[in-house]
């Protein structure tokens, strides 16, 4: 009998996890570590003039390819936005420092390299575009503070 209950409990748990994942996967959220900055040296690539989309990928990652397509699209669409893809395995130092748990994880950096947004899972193009608008306004409000 125990086995039956374990099976039912597992399927119920799986349903809850699945629904939560469907709703949260790829959601672009404000990151709690907004003070962390990534520089050209960290990325091994130049920052975008206005913003940078940093994608962490691994070889054993199904949605990484689709994510690459979305981000390449966005960086082609919005001038001054760079797309940098990082192989998580060869940069475990960054993975630990930035607390990356899954691939793909996408970070949105403002022009100074501040991490302003983070998405775990494949983000939708519209969400990335909206988040970029936020990242750019983040820059202009900073500039306003300095003036």
């Amino acid at each position: 009998m125990t086995g039956l209950w374990v099976a039912l409990a597992t399927l119920a748990l799986g349903s809850v996890i699945g629904v939560v994942r469907l709703r949260r996967d790829g959601k672009v959220r404000d990151t709690a570590r907004a003070d962390d900055r990534l520089a050209t040296a960290d990325l091994g690539a130049d920052l975008g003039e206005r913003a940078t989309l940093v994608q962490f990928s691994t070889a054993f990652c199904q949605p990484c390819r689709a994510t690459r397509r979305v981000l390449a699209d966005v960086s082609g669409l919005v001038p001054g936005v760079a797309h940098v893809e990082i192989d998580a395995e060869s940069r475990l130092d960054l993975v630990r420092r930035l607390d990356i748990m899954r691939t793909p994880t996408v970070l949105i950096l403002d022009s100074a390299g501040n991490i302003v947004k983070k998405a775990a899972g494949q983000p939708r193009k519209a969400d990335v575009l909206a988040a970029l608008a936020g990242a750019v306004s983040h820059i202009s409000s900073q500039n306003a503070d300095e003036m």
Binding site: T2, G3, V6, A7, A9, T10, L11, L13, G14, S15, I17, G18, R21, L22, T58, F60, C61, Q62, A88, E89, L92, V95, I100, M101, R102, T103
Partner: peptide, 30 residues
């Protein structure tokens, strides 16, 4: 029970939702 249930959970998430739980353990293992 625990080991079989863990495998069942991963298979069910893949069948019902298309999520590959096993794939995501890779980065955590690394």
């Amino acid at each position: 029970l625990v080991a079989t249930a863990a495998a069942l959970l991963a298979a069910f998430l893949n069948a019902a939702f298309g999520f590959c739980l096993g794939c995501e353990t890779y980065l955590l293992i690394r």
